[in-house]
Design a protein around this nucleic acid. Sequence first.
RNA 1: GUGGACGUAGCUCAACUGGUCAGAGCACUGGACUGUGGCUCCAGGGGCUGGGGGUUCAAGUCCCCUCGUCCACCCCA
Length: 426
Amino acid sequence: MVAIKAPRGVRDILPDESWKWAYVLEVASEVADLFGYREVYLPIFEDTALFARGIGDTTDVVEKEMYTFTDRSGRSLTLRPEATASMVRCYLEHGMQRERQPAKLWCSGPMFRYERPQKGRYRQFWQLDFEAIGVQDPMVDVETVALSLELFRRLGLSNLEVMVNSVGCPRCRPTYREKLKAYLAPHLDELCDSCRARFERNPLRTLDCKEEGCIEITQGAPDVVEHLCEECRSHFDQFLNGLEAIRASYRLNKRLVRGLDYYTKTAFEVTSGKLGAQNAVCGGGRYDHLAEAIGGPFTPGVGFAAGIERVILSMEEEGASFGERPSIDAFVVTAEASARPKAVSFLHELRRNGLRCDMDYAGKGMRGQLKAASSSGARFACILGSEELSRGAVAVKDLSSGEQREFPLERAAEMLKTILQGQAGG
RNA sequence: GUGGACGUAGCUCAACUGGUCAGAGCACUGGACUGUGGCUCCAGGGGCUGGGGGUUCAAGUCCCCUCGUCCACCCCA
């Protein structure tokens, strides 16, 4: 038993799993390239005010889920709960408005939220984050959705549902908000506790409630989409037309209200039918006033984040491929311990030729070394025996067929490389 | 933060109503096979039964606390 264990809600990604992560990140990187998104590496902690102002201080994330601490100089810092605010901060800080717009950026990395852990929900979790900052064109919203769908398509996810909605803007939302409140007011005592609390602070969120009673009440509530201002209405129509144009199947979900304050106009979420309660595999939308909230000039933007843990869980549930699991080409074996220096130099030679290989360092006998070769998954065992060495040769055994041949020691690396490349090529 | 289930070797799990119950399989190590793996057989290492307290002649088994996991709520990725 180890004395100190990993804190609650965080976990180690072990080798049996890490190669799957590498695959997802590789595919994400390819798709980013394909869509013209450039990668950035952002800090994992930021000034607390960035999130408090950017995300909104009445949101659950800011109110009760942040890992906030004071550093030695007394500054309040917070482990990022999401990446969008950081991305916009990065854009503003580096004056990217001077470049061609929109700035299309992506990043990946861990996010932190203090929540009760659950399947697909951790306190440290990884996201892929894609943001297009600087323009209001609804076609960018379409491209954002298209990017997420292409990413999931390449990852082999099929059991997905895309939900879209528009949450309006600071011009039309207040009007709608009042209409909604007026509608809800007479039913106030029938709503659940949390919805009563939402009524004042964020009435739109009552639409998102899963309580039977609340769902029933909100059934007849005024419709967000019906109350959009002309600009939002037009934006939403163009967005939906764009989705039709790329033949994306989506579902209009009038109850889709994102939990972060900065969303305007487009909101969307992709859910996986293969997950449990935490089934959102990606979520995002437009945030035209986020930059202003954090002290910058008006800077529209749209983007989304995908949860890597959930993507991988869904892929496993759907039996999707993670590409080829890394393995070894050759395992070097010595018959006598005296040949070990020779083995080390041979191993080095193989590696210089690009062959993935290994040898035993645990002092096993020849039999044990071959067992190790076998369980390592190596294609070949290269056996350095005194007889072979005396003729300047190495015995190369194909571990799947059992066939064994002798190669001249100084040409073995090259010959093995040729054999392996020949197979890779066809 | 709320509710429920659970916590025995690295992993998957046994141990009737508290009484040789601390075990098996897999994995690991070694051997049968003194220079040839995968199969088989044999042997071995490894657990203060998550931690702490209590009840009892006796607790893995009952009670309390705590930590953690899982599921759901909440919320979201």
